[in-house]
Design a protein around this nucleic acid. Sequence first.
DNA 1: TACGAAACGAGAGCACCGCTCTCGCCATGA
DNA 2: TCATGGCGAGAGCGGTGCTCTCGTTTCGTA
Lengths: 229, 229
Amino acid sequence: MTAPSIRARVRAEMIDEIKAVARRHLAADGANLSLRAVARDLGMVSSAIYRYFPSRDELLTALIIDAYQALGTVVEAADAEVSPDDLRGRWHAVFRAARRWALDNPAEYALIYGSPVPGYAAPQDTIGPAQRPPVVLVGILRDGLTRGRLAAPPADELPEPVRTDLTAIGTAFVPGLPEALLARGMAGWTQLFGLISFEIFGRLNNGVHHQDAYFDHQTRLMADLVGLP
Amino acid sequence: MTAPSIRARVRAEMIDEIKAVARRHLAADGANLSLRAVARDLGMVSSAIYRYFPSRDELLTALIIDAYQALGTVVEAADAEVSPDDLRGRWHAVFRAARRWALDNPAEYALIYGSPVPGYAAPQDTIGPAQRPPVVLVGILRDGLTRGRLAAPPADELPEPVRTDLTAIGTAFVPGLPEALLARGMAGWTQLFGLISFEIFGRLNNGVHHQDAYFDHQTRLMADLVGLP
DNA sequence: TACGAAACGAGAGCACCGCTCTCGCCATGA
DNA sequence: TCATGGCGAGAGCGGTGCTCTCGTTTCGTA
């Protein structure tokens, strides 16, 4: 393997630097990222940025993918750190890790889970990384089932069209998971997203002051719903 | 009472017209609303808009309040149309009405439940209208309790700090509702928000095709969690 | 009924934005 | 060695939110 040329390495560093500055601006000013401001911070002229990213949207896409990967990594690591048999421990660890990451990176959370930018269509590269957190969650349920620590809900609780949809999703992501359990896992994922969004977007500010405890309690409720022992 | 002057009436109509055009633009182009484009549509010059709204943010705030009120009205009406004793019927009606409104008005849903605009702080006028849907949901639980059709979960399932927070929220919005039940109601509200957001923001597009049935099933799951008979 | 004040719309202008194009400079690979 | 291509600077285009000024029109009041 040949060492990357100096130019290629400098280019890669430049790309990383642009993304880093852009992330800083995102955290400070929110989603309306200004290419010109990023360029100014780097001592460049705005048109120079276009040597590295063909458009502002492409820069945002790069940041989005990075954010998905960062969250996915954090969540998977949290899950892996708990004994596989401790289903509730894993559930709580995943919930807490996702929330922690969101609180530490609110702008990036808003970037990937806020309202999508109007003309902006999520590129194909984002859908894979975006699935990592929910896959981890339903993975806990699958492990619980295979280890006999979790009972599958009756399959007939699912209406037919939902079952067929979930069959396809299940075979793609968590083969062997009964559809009714997958539905519960997705409910947990939906709840996790809702809890974090409410907190990050300040919708709990009037009333809920002990947000850690509140989050843990709601996590517990959902663990009950999905049937974790 | 004196009739409003012609000028006042024309002004009110002008405000409504601006908001209507702005809503159209919002639906077409997403959240980055252009004052100049709205003015053009009205055959005005952009500075004329400032006679009616002191800034673009104030226009957005007006649209946000209208959206909250519209959603609140729809949800309350849906709840009122079901027999008060039919707790599950009311639960489903509220969930369905909220989703229906969001699907019919996706841009306005994104406006009020998407990521908040960066420099934008929700004005005090919005917090009241924003509470209407969750208040309806927990109202169902309170009715179930007072009619003896719903059992309150044990109070000691709540950690102390959560209980005190919820006590304050409860006395403000739904006096007499046990805190543990309020927590479940808020879980339902969080889930409703998550379900709608996932659907509106296209996060279910890969896999879930029968969205009506999926939504109904998840609604049912949450009804089970809160303990509706 | 007449008049001063206030509301109104148009227009010019400011600073900013994303993006394109052109122009020199220089490292790179053949 | 030399042509190629990557690179940064700069000018410029059409767009944005917002401000200020200037006539005109309408209103409440004297």
